[in-house]
């Protein structure tokens, strides 16, 4: 069923290649970063205790945040629970979405209280596999605070 929807998804995604999108991820919360570290299995007080004098935001925290803004309306989510523009070109289409992996380059340390903005560009759309196959979307993201860039990410999504 979803194979027939790959064509409109591909067409839409291709139309978005190269378009620059910017979105605020809000303010870095030490408590949220510590909760993230705990859920990731970390035990170091530097990562899980915001009161520790050497506390640091887990380097993977920012790049693990999805795009659904806190307070988003229910209709902003797809029936599968994904935020509607998490994967370019798929808003409103009954396609299956999977994360394919990331390449993360760390450029700086996020600090509690900083406002974070992410810049996203869809770099490529490829049709892979046999038959209807699947789409492989590659996006490039840059996370930055007022101090400058903090991380660059190349992320891949699979659309079936």
């Amino acid at each position: 069923m979803t194979g027939a929807l790959l064509e409109p998804a591909e067409k839409r995604a291709r139309a978005e290649i190269g378009r620059v999108e910017r979105r605020s991820l809000g303010t870095v919360s030490a408590d949220a970063a510590a909760e993230f570290a705990r859920a990731a299995g970390e035990t170091s007080p530097r990562l899980v205790d915001p009161a520790h004098p050497a506390f640091t935001v887990h380097p993977m925290y920012l790049v693990s945040l999805l795009r659904g803004a806190p307070g988003a309306d229910p209709e902003e989510y797809r029936p599968d629970g994904m935020y509607r523009d998490e994967v370019p070109g798929t808003d409103g289409l009954d396609v299956r979405l999977m994360a394919g992996g990331q390449d993360v380059r760390f450029l700086g340390e996020a600090r509690p209280g900083e406002r974070i903005e992410v810049r996203r560009v869809l770099e490529s759309v490829e049709r892979k596999g046999k038959g209807a196959g699947f789409l492989l979307l590659t996006v490039v993201k840059t996370y930055a605070s007022e101090r400058g860039p903090l991380a660059e990410v190349t992320e891949r999504f699979i659309v079936r």
């Binding site: 949220a32 909760e35 993230f36 859920a39 693990s64 945040l65 999805l66 795009r67 659904g68 803004a69 806190p70 989510y77 599968d80 629970g81 994904m82 935020y83 979405l97 999977m98």
Partner: peptide, 9 residues
């Protein structure tokens, strides 16, 4: 929850 990931899978 902490990464805003509501994907039902």
């Amino acid at each position: 929850a902490v990464t805003r990931n509501a994907h039902r899978i």
